[in-house]
Structures are given as structure tokens and as C-alpha cells.
Amino acid sequence: MRILRAIFSHGSGRIGGIIVSVYLLVAILGMLGLTPHNPITQYRVDRLHAPNGAYWMGTDLFGRDVASRLMAGVGQSFTVAFFSVAFATLAGTVLGLAAAWLGRRWDGVLMRIMDVLLAFPAILLALLIVTVAGPGTWTSVVAIGIVYTPIFTRVVRGPALSLKAREFVDAARTFGSSSSYIVTRHLLLNLVAPLTVQVTLALAWALLTEAGLSFLGLGTQPPAASLGLMLSDSRNLMETAPWLMIFPGLAIMISILGFNLLGDALRDILDPKMRRAPA
């Protein structure tokens, strides 16, 4: 509760929080199918209608309602973003804690593997994984998750190493606490703040990557709706039906903006040392 209050008394946190909440609502409605029209029904007589009372954001080439597709697309994008970031957070935290706690050879081997993944161009790694496994929602989740795992591993390992050297860890050891207790209780709990910030910013990145993959035709597959796919489809109709490009474009941009603002605010609130630090 205290953190919510802190977010809402922070200038950019308030705006980011409102944006993210609205998107969450839209995403849930979109996933539950509570959209003004069915997102894949083709109203053939109403093809390429400009925004009006019946179709708030117009219709596309096949007469599908853009607003409904947008809502379904937001649901889709958020699903991929949340699961991929959850994947990366879980994998990165486990690997980072393992590297820091086990030290020596384990640390060396794990961090070299992360170096390899980091030297591999991110979008190309995602593309390769998607091509191997075949495009689709869950492939995107795994691909984006793997791409962001090294970043979380680094975010966890650094602070975990310095925490490990602190007196309270030595004290816990002398009292006979088990390794798993110390790692979860003393290390992990102290890492919640930097992880929260990283998760929020990673959500922005995951939304961007998901939209990028869909834009290239390697994410969500038609006829399902996705923001990147809608944007990509709008290219040939840009001049006759600009609404096909403008609404999905703005939807992607504002969602990323929301998470960026929220992430910045959380960094200010949770980590006073990092205040005014780079994005």
C-alpha cells in the first residue's frame, strides 16, 4: 500500500501508473472477448470505414473492427510481455543467485554463458529461436524470455555478491542457517527493490520486442490480432486508411511510455542511490 501511495505522489509515477492501469483493464477486456465487436469477424460491407459511431477506430481491409482488434492485440501483447518477463526474471534470479552463491568455477562458467548470450545480437537471437520453434505466442514468450535472462542474471549477481560479503550473512552462517535459507531470506529479500525496477523497465522492452517480432510476421499469427501485425498490415493502405496505422502505433507507443514512466518512478522511490541515474 505504501508503495502505491509513493507512486501516486511521484509526478511521472502517477502518469505511468494511470496509463498502465488503463492498459491492464483494456488487456483483460480484450482477452475475455469483451470488445465492441468480434475482433476477427469480417463485416464485408463495411470495409475500410473511417472511424465513426459504430466503429470507433474504423475498419480494416477485411471489414474487421479496428478498436476490437486493438483491444485483443493489447491483451495479446501484454500476455507475451508478462510471461516473457516472468520467465526472464525467474531464470535470471536463479542463475544470478547461483553464480554469486556458488562462486568460483560456477560463477565463471555461468557468467561466460551469459556473455555469449549478450554478444549475440538480441533481436537476431529472438528471430532465430522463433524460426526454430515456429512462430506463435508461446514461442515469442520463450524467445523474449531467453533474450532478457542475461540482463536479469547480471542485475541479481552484482548486488548478491556484495550482500554475500556482508556481516549479517556471516552471522547467519555462524548461527547455523542453511544455505537455502540464507539465499532466499537474506539475499533474495534484499534484491526485491532492484528487481522490481528492472521488471518494470523490461516490460517496456518486451512489449517493444513483441511488437517488432509480430511486425516482421514472426510473432502472433493471423487472423489473431496483435499490435505489431496490425501496424505491418497498415503499410500498404497508409494513404487511404491512415487510421489503420495511427491507432496501433499510438497504442504501442503509449504502453511503452507507461512502463518507462512507472519504471523511472520506482527507481526514484525504491533506490535513492540511483536517483537521477541513467535510464
Partner: peptide, 22 residues
């Protein structure tokens, strides 16, 4: 700057092309 950082390159690219052509 915040808006710039949140604008994906493909959204901006399409907007530039659209603005120029329209």
C-alpha cells in the same frame, strides 16, 4: 525525451513515411 525513448523505430518510421507522402 521520454516520448522519444518510448517510440519504437517502426512506429516512427511509418509515421515519417506517412507524413511525407500524405
Amino acid at each position: 525525451a521520454m516520448i522519444g525513448q518510448s517510440t519504437p523505430s517502426f512506429v516512427l518510421g511509418l509515421l515519417i513515411i506517412y507524413t511525407l507522402s500524405a
